[in-house]
Design a protein around this nucleic acid. Sequence first.
DNA 1: ATTAGTGCAAATCTTTTGCAGTATA
DNA 2: TATACTGCAAAAGATTTGCACTAAT
Lengths: 157, 157
Amino acid sequence: MPHHRANADAQLEAALDLLRANHQRVTEPRKAILGILSREHGPFTAEELHKRMKKDTCDLVTIYRSLAVMEESGAVRRCDFGDAAYRYEINTGDHHHHHIVCRSCHEAKTLDMCVADGLERMARQLGYTKVTHLLEVFGVCPQCQENANKQPRPHKN
Amino acid sequence: MPHHRANADAQLEAALDLLRANHQRVTEPRKAILGILSREHGPFTAEELHKRMKKDTCDLVTIYRSLAVMEESGAVRRCDFGDAAYRYEINTGDHHHHHIVCRSCHEAKTLDMCVADGLERMARQLGYTKVTHLLEVFGVCPQCQENANKQPRPHKN
DNA sequence: ATTAGTGCAAATCTTTTGCAGTATA
DNA sequence: TATACTGCAAAAGATTTGCACTAAT
């Protein structure tokens, strides 16, 4: 996979354009958040984003507020891994996907497919509107299994 | 569907037996929680369970602690509807299922099927162990759509 | 110049923990 | 009676809000 950098830049620009299109201001904190989300493999919690920024980029509160507005404009997407902390990833929009999340280190791999369309259809037939779904797979990754005997890979939360 | 009551009683007894089998004590608060979960259609949050009990049955804290131990012994199952509050249902154990949850009133209908088995298999092929998944469908139920013009159906949280 | 965005402090909401007292097996 | 369970108060962690200040458009 070449052009990692170029691809990240393109994602970042697309996200910033979404902000502009939605009459939201392009500020340093927002550029910082989207920069991380486009360059590093997430998704990340607000806390994790904050730690990844260089010191004094912005307050943690600003990250929460920025993520909220950026989700509304479609620049980012919120993920729920069932562990009491929301995570965010950049919204490429081009395809629907889910994750395999390690129970030990919390690292998430992307699954470029979805099997829940049938369920959504069923929900619509039952008369529901604005139908969406939540689908995540959990397990212990090979890396963590290996480290299990020794030291478990550390993770926040 | 006849025998609602009898069925609820059977579920309750089965759950209590699970507690005994796991050397956990059968106390009033636990009987109250399992009673509600077996008789009423959930799943419910700790708070909702507390409100449904007759006054002074037990403290909210006890509900949290009871749910934790009862989940360990398999008497109840925890559901995550992606809204920052865990919900619990009685674990009948006989079949895997998921829910359609209304975004407005939070009422959950049970979906007696699952389409994520393929994803679990894929995760195992990737080397993950202890694989499970989280799958929920969301929408606005017909009832709430109808009430939308008038008063939205109230919901906690 | 407007108005959205920000920092700081404090509030909120859900869940957890410490500890001394109570009840179950 | 031994030890798990409970109540109360208080802590903890994630997220939100109030308000005065700052900066993007």
